[in-house]
Design a protein around this nucleic acid. Sequence first.
DNA 1: TTTTGTGAATTGCTTCACAGCA
DNA 2: TGCTGTGAAGCAATTCACAAAA
Lengths: 216, 216
Amino acid sequence: MAKPEQIPTPAVRRLSLYLRQLDTFRAADRRTVSSKDLGRALGLSDAQVRKDLAYFGQFGHPGIGYRVGELILRLRGILGTDKMSNVLLVGAGNLGRALLAFRGFRKRGFQIVAAFDGDPGKIGTDVAGVEPMRILPISELSRVASERAVRIGILSVPAQAAQQVADDMIAAGIRGILNFAPVTILVPDGVAVSSVDLAVHLEQLLVQQRDYHTDA
Amino acid sequence: MAKPEQIPTPAVRRLSLYLRQLDTFRAADRRTVSSKDLGRALGLSDAQVRKDLAYFGQFGHPGIGYRVGELILRLRGILGTDKMSNVLLVGAGNLGRALLAFRGFRKRGFQIVAAFDGDPGKIGTDVAGVEPMRILPISELSRVASERAVRIGILSVPAQAAQQVADDMIAAGIRGILNFAPVTILVPDGVAVSSVDLAVHLEQLLVQQRDYHTDA
DNA sequence: TTTTGTGAATTGCTTCACAGCA
DNA sequence: TGCTGTGAAGCAATTCACAAAA
């Protein structure tokens, strides 16, 4: 299959899960993995796994499966995480500081290089990150983003400030926003937003969990 | 349309977004809202909004739209957030403590009623939550879950402990798990899992952002 | 054998377009 | 007129099933 112009969005999303699972397999010294193995570990069919991977190239070996190390490199190349990406964060509240302290980003190709907040009382405060940093005012956003070539930002400000800060981020050159505020952020074409709303996730668990023991 | 036995999963997911947006509209004193308005605020088509809502009943008023307050009540009933749900949390690291401190769950129908950790050094420590609480050992999970009728749990432990703790949660009666560990959790039928992996989100932003300015 | 890659068939979801109601 | 609810059409994603490769 020659790369089709239109790759299904769900297939791209699953690529990240394949990569994560492959890292797990490699940590357990697995050398090769079949589409069946990979599917079972993720709750997907083997056909789904094969089709998804085939959208991006021919990575498998008939009779053998996929070589773990090889596939990891390929997927990293496709996702762009073979190179390190600088990320900035706006909103150094409880959640923001927890994210700054999280050590798991680096080995997946991301590094938080600056933290900002709109509260004057927080400016200049030190935060304990992977490499500790000082909180900067939002007026510095543009300068830092361009100096460090940052295209991805994490937005962890309160809901009522979110749209304004997102606009500031976009004006500063950010082209992908990971939004933790529980509101929809409207952005122009060419800017991607991915939202994580904890209450939304809990709601979905509630319905699923209930639907199960009421009928299914 | 009589409620069809099979409601599309994406429609159920969007229900949460409709509810959130309606809360925003109500905060701005909007009394009625059309499918067009609701769609525009969320980046969806008006037809999509109407069809989604119609899966669950006839909530609209031709010529008028949907009454905001009425629809909020209906959606809460469908999602189950008209009653408060008790939630517990396992893993009182940086992220876990940030989640405990988050004030936004309550008005969406969720309350974190207990926090657990596997580290003996943390047991008994006080954590500053909406109502402050003391960290309990995982051996108390079953007792607390049944005493307080908890069916939903937040899992914010390190990756290598995640599956084991998830198993403990399920054994304690938890039927929905919000997983922040960057691994796939395998669960039996009847248990729902929703995962939030920050690195996965960042990866998706990276590809989207890149795909845009390379071809589209 | 085992396992991939892939057209074809199928299932599922979204959009269209319009009758009917306020 | 303005707007919903909904069959029908169209589009997208998944599963099937098998030829080809090791």
